[in-house]
Write a protein that binds this DNA or RNA. Structure first.
Length: 711
DNA sequence: CTAGGGTTAG
């Protein structure tokens, strides 16, 4: 199909740079494919769509129509290609040029060139665009051909060529081009100047700089940056001062270079002067300026405050792996960490779940006599708890002379997570004796201790005590914890009554606690009721679907399982895939069910087979009921056997010293069958295995688990 | 907002 192109060479808008108007007019060059050409100039419709996207990325503001089409593309409308094609029935030089830029920016030089050659008419701008494009894609050959073909290269074309030659290291050719240019504007001079600097020809750059007929802020910035980058930072600073005297004001780029130069020249006073300019000019928001300012301080003013700021900054930006690095750097260079540095570093270790690194930091704290500081101590307690070392957390707690409510809460919550219910109760009575006022977090920790340790009476007493005798306002979480206490002990009816009688408006957390207990005690009727409440309040609660579906599965009601799965799929609710991980020497090793991507995969599966054999010898029979998949028995057993946590345990066994404790983390709740298996595994390999699942820690040793099979 | 010249450190 052919369309008629109504082509109107639009030269009016090209007057923005009046100097060049004539050149543009002279360069309008009708080409052979003149006024009619097939749709195929854009290739397949797929290419077409991609091109259009490039186009709109650059020019979504071009017209009202383009906005509309752009919206359609964003919304993934199926007929986007057609609409865009309609848009382009009458493309002009600008549209073509924009599309060429789009192609080049996404690295598709072929498409860019095809568009260029299929243009009905070309002006200087599109010639220059395509030349620049070839350069950006590294095709110098084509660049030279294009330049020779171009009817009348503009000063921009010449400058682009010069920049290109320099990029390929052809300094002499660039110099020749510069001399041959019919007109040389300031940008051309600047291009040469910058290129000399980039090619380590800083002496030539300096000579060239002195010869320049005029200089603007770009010239000065190039010179300052060039000197600094070539090891002449002192000279750079002199040039910076000269720039001021000549009345040229710095902009963010200049300041960035100047900061860098002051840092490299170790010139503190000058850096501060520049800082003054930054504040005066309001450029402090530029990321480049900020980055170079940080470098400046880091070079000259390396102290504990700065390093701690860095530690905190890494932590709050999720770059936890950098925390311990900065910390050890500080220790090595005798920038002694203070209380805040320790808190930040330990928080990072905590997020990394890296017990090894946490212990190193703890040792440093003791060395610097900060081991009994209350803030450092709190961070240590939290870190040890999170990394699965509750005993160490308690040791730290005991050694702290000064304790605050956070210390108590962190320790109690740690005990809860590790199923040390009695310890939590002991801590609470110490608190009361010591006249420490418990808060709402304390109560959460205590109730959760009761539920994880099966302490029904204690839980009831605590709840009553707190609702009658304290000023703490009971919240949903507390009610949910109490439901958990009752539910886990099998008091499901009592739990339901408790929910119905609670004075607050019930939310889904409370019902979810009950539903979870229904799963433990296989009470399908109540589970369905609870699930209905949850899904009324929160129709997209994936936890409710998964729990209910697991309940149906263990009751062999596969029809209901399927029905739930279909509903989930229709509502777009995703079940979180199970994953487990092991952190060794700060390195996190992640496993998904049955995956074979780990470098040690072969050894891991070998170890699994070995474990399987040993388990059989001990008379272990996999509990198929607990598998969630509707598959044949043998397969069921297999998929159970390759659950992510098994891979993680097998890996940890291979990757650590024999006899040492291994710690495995999992995002979901541990499955019952795995739990029985791992108790035996701990016995077989004679090691302590700690598993953290989504609700608590399990400490497995010699065939038994700290949870007492109750979780 | 159709094209060329400058910007941290790693």
């Amino acid at each position: 199909m052919h369309v008629r192109i109504s082509f109107c060479p639009d030269v009016r808008d090209e007057d923005s740079n009046p100097k060049q108007t004539n050149l543009f007019k002279a360069n309008l060059t009708p080409c052979s494919c003149t006024r009619s050409f097939p749709y195929s100039w854009l290739g397949s419709s797929e290419t077409h769509t991609q091109l259009s996207k490039c186009f709109f990325r650059r020019a979504s503001h071009a017209t009202r129509e383009s906005h509309a089409v752009s919206r359609h593309i964003k919304n993934g409308k199926p007929d986007e290609a057609r609409e865009v094609r309609d848009m382009f029935q009458f493309p002009d030089v600008r549209s073509f040029t924009k599309m060429i830029v789009g192609c080049v920016q996404t690295g598709r030089l072929d498409d860019a060139l095809r568009l260029f050659y299929q243009m009905p008419v070309r002006n200087a701008i599109c010639w220059n665009t395509v030349i620049k494009g070839c350069l950006d894609c590294g095709d110098l050959m084509t660049v030279e051909e294009l330049f020779d073909e171009m009817p009348k290269p503009s000063v921009v074309s010449w400058t682009t060529m010069i920049d290109g030659f320099f990029r390929f290291g052809h300094v002499e050719r660039a110099e020749r081009f510069f001399k041959q240019m019919p007109i040389r504007d300031l940008a051309a001079w600047n291009a040469m100047l910058h290129a000399y600097c980039k090619n380590a020809r800083v002496d030539d750059a300096e000579k060239f700089f002195e010869q320049m007929p005029s200089r603007n802020v770009i010239s000065w910035t190039s010179m300052i940056g060039g000197l600094d980058q070539n090891g002449k930072s002192e000279e750079a600073l002199i040039v910076f001062e000269r720039m001021f005297k000549s009345g040229v004001l710095p902009n963010p780029s200049t300041l960035t270079c100047a900061f860098s130069a002051s840092a490299n020249a170790l010139s503190f006073p000058l850096g501060l002067q520049i800082l003054g300019h930054v504040f005066k000019s309001g450029f402090c928001l530029s990321v480049f300026v900020c980055a170079s300012l940080i470098t400046f301080y880091a070079h000259l003013y390396r102290n504990v405050v700065l390093c701690t700021a860095l530690l905190t900054g890494y932590g709050s930006n999720g770059r936890h792996e950098d925390g311990p690095k900065v910390f050890s750097d500080m220790m090595r260079t005798s920038v002694l960490p203070n209380q805040s540095s320790f808190v930040s570093t330990l928080n990072s270790c905590c997020s990394l779940e890296s017990l090894d690194q946490g212990k190193v930091v703890h040792a440093s704290a003791i060395k610097l006599q900060l081991g009994s500081d209350v803030f450092v101590g709190n961070s240590l307690v939290v870190m040890y708890n999170k990394c699965g070392a509750v005993d160490d957390a308690v040791v730290v707690f005991k050694r702290l002379r000064e304790k605050n409510i956070i210390t108590w809460n962190a320790t109690i919550c740690g005990c809860a997570q590790h199923g040390r219910g009695m310890w939590a109760m002991e801590l609470f009575s110490q608190m009361i004796r010591g006249l420490v006022q418990p808060d709402e977090i304390t109560l959460t920790g205590l109730l959760s201790s009761c539920s994880h340790s099966g302490m029904l009476q204690k839980g009831r007493c605590l709840f009553r005590y707190f609702s009658e005798n304290t000023l703490i306002e009971l919240k949903q979480e507390h009610y949910a914890c109490m439901v958990d206490v009752l539910g886990r002990c099998g008091k499901l009816e009592e739990a339901e009554d408790f929910i119905r009688n609670m004075p607050l408006k019930t939310n889904s957390i409370v019902w979810l606690a009950l539903l979870s207990s229904c799963k433990t005690h296989s009470n399908l009727d109540l589970a369905e009721r609870a699930a209905n409440y949850i899904l009324d309040l929160e129709p997209h609660c994936s936890a409710a679907y998964v729990l209910l579906s697991n309940l149906y599965a263990s009751a062999n009601r596969w029809g209901d399982v399927l029905r739930l799965r279909v509903t989930m799929r229709d509502k777009g609710i995703m079940k979180q895939p199970g994953r487990s991980w092991v952190t060794i020497k700060g390195q996190k090793h992640l496993f998904h069910s049955g995956d074979k991507f780990h470098p040690l995969s072969e050894n891991i599966y070998w170890k699994l087979d070995w474990l399987k054999m040993k388990l059989k010898e001990l008379g272990y029979v996999p509990d198929k009921r607990l598998s969630l998949h509707d598959v044949e028995d043998e397969q069921k057993e297999d998929s159970l056997f390759y659950h992510s946590e098994r891979l993680a345990v097998a890996f940890a066994l291979i990757a650590t010293v024999e006899g040492s404790t291994i710690t495995v983390m999992k995002n979901l709740r541990i499955c019952g069958d795995y739990h029985s298996a791992i108790k035996l595994i701990a016995k077989i390999v004679d090691r302590e295995i700690i598993v953290r699942d989504s609700s608590r820690f399990h400490q497995l040793r010699g065939g038994i688990c700290s949870c007492g099979d109750y979780w």
